[in-house]
Design a protein around this nucleic acid. Structure first.
Lengths: 191, 191, 191, 191
DNA sequence: TATGAATGAGGATTCATTCAT
DNA sequence: AATGAATGAATCCTCATTCAT
């Protein structure tokens, strides 16, 4: 198990480097050599740990998606009312534990590539479904049954839109502010 | 003038080819030769008319943004009340004259690249500002002054989110349905 | 004949443009389009008059070689003694009617290409032989028969060297000065 | 250090290939792939070791210039009288350790390109100055002070001319013969 | 004659990937 | 485990040449 840890640590370090590098130069424009430099390793190591550039992005996204999952669960277990559960899910998406300009950059590039990559598409669908499932569970106790689905989509769309806009030039990313905005949005949307 | 027309026609043909090709393979994965094949021309012509692959994407986006502008204006001139104006702007964004899976694919890739390309970033800001300006003008007559800005952002974010989601695998794109959803969303948001 | 003149004028204009352009950018780096711009014409015209880029350089060299021939003859007819004839030939090579930095640039590039081009090699040999023949004719009356050939080669080598050095960066080209130097050189060489 | 050696060996091998290939096809007409073939490597390696085609020519010339420098020094240390020193410098230029048709071919193409390339121009000036400095040092003790400079230029011009002529079609290159000719030339020139 | 749009073969360069050490 | 030298397929772009007008 101690053995395993070394390898996992290395992978995590490399993934952090991918996030930094991708934010700065875009994943497509990045060479494996550049990523290796960010991570202070060699191209050989990148291939040793991940198998290739494509797999590297997939691994990075799995990492980010896991973080979202963890933060969501942490917040959900503390919530008691349906509305609290709804807020928990939405706030998790903008939790400063991982909502940052860097993550947004990677996320949007992932989105742009997903339609052209089976493994990425799978990840995208997985996350989308998980979030939707969580949201719907809470929403059904808040809005009339026939409005839950549409309402859920509106919320997901809003959240995706925030991620999308956050990575653009000249946009300052502030987790706290985004959480407030999201709460105001929910208040407006749910009467 | 006949000369100019021919050259413009050629440019438009090439841009249509870019949209088709990008939707199918993603812009980054696309080779100039492939685009040329879609357009039934040579790689030389692409460079002759646009100067390079990057400039080609910029030209394509300018084309799409122009279409949005035209459709928006067409709808705006027919609107009389503030709410009608608001609806006009939002409906224009999902007008089937250009809201299609293909456009969404290009749009999202444009978004992913904009932070790393001066010319694309400029286009992105230009469009974002134009839409915001239109929306705010109408919103200020609908909601209290202190809510207009936040409300505007929510609407833009929602629209961006729709574009983003529309290009994903397994999502069917239906302009009419998207327009209806958007109207329902506005109703909910503006009480 | 008037007809012919128009075409000849055009060819001469184009050749002058080639010389200017080659001096500024080197013939290899030059595109036909650039040459056309120097000549204020189109690429089509270049091909119409010369048939291609390679033929253009050959035509240009033929032009320069003709100029040398003409200047040499003009000076030779005025010479009476063997030494005067020798001087005439050498002075012709540095006559400011065509000895200039521009000509030297073209000449040296011609030299560099000649070993790899049949037509250029022929021109090179032709000129070399013509000059040698003229020189030898005079030299044989000046130095002992068994020294004429070696002496001739030395003179030709010196003249070629001057051309070569004249095109280099930082070297000022002055026809009068080069003529003086050449005369001093001959004096030294021929006792 | 073993590492360094291997890499240096690789570089030298590549440079030898450039000389062979350039002599056969001219540097401009040569493709990187062809050079790679001469060197029995890949195009990738060429770029890995030199960074590009231009840098490759510069490296090759630096190599040739170094050879000249080394041969010159070897001969100079053995010379005692001024005239012996003068001869040493001139003989070095035609030493069969590197005076060959191949070297001449490369040299002349270098000369033709130098006026259009900063790095090549620097090399050209460097070598020209070094040879001049060596020659002048010896000449000042042989000819009157006011004649040294002009005499030096005549010698350099002669040597450059020999290089230039040696690469032409139909000229046989013989180091020994060129050395003899040069000695005869010096004898004639220096009374 | 003159033009310049269109072509596409050809070349320099990049970069993911491999593998010997 | 880690490295980075070596590879060569793949791609963008250039440019001589053609040809319809």
């Amino acid at each position: 198990m101690a053995r395993k840890k070394i390898s996992d640590l290395r992978r995590t370090e490399l993934i952090e480097a991918v996030i930094d590098a991708t934010h700065e130069h875009s994943f497509a424009a990045l060479t494996v050599a550049q990523i290796a430099e960010f991570a202070q390793t060699s191209t050989g190591s990148i291939h040793y740990y991940f198998g290739g550039k494509d797999a590297l992005l997939a691994a990075t996204m799995r990492h980010l998606l896991d973080r979202l999952k963890v933060v969501t669960i942490e917040r959900l277990v503390k919530a008691t009312t349906p509305r609290e559960r709804l807020d928990a899910i939405v706030l998790a998406n903008f939790d400063d534990a991982f909502f940052s300009k860097k993550s947004c950059s990677v996320w949007v590039q992932f989105w742009a590539m997903a339609p052209y990559s089976e493994p990425l598409a799978r990840l995208q669908v997985l996350n989308q479904s998980r979030v939707r499932s969580n949201l719907l569970h809470a929403l059904k106790q808040i809005v009339p049954a026939n409005q839950a689905s549409q309402c859920c989509t509106a919320i997901q769309t809003y959240m995706d839109g925030i991620w999308l806009r956050s990575c653009q030039t000249g946009i300052a990313v502030d987790a706290g502010k985004s959480q407030q905005d999201a709460m105001t949005f929910l208040d407006r949307l749910l009467v």
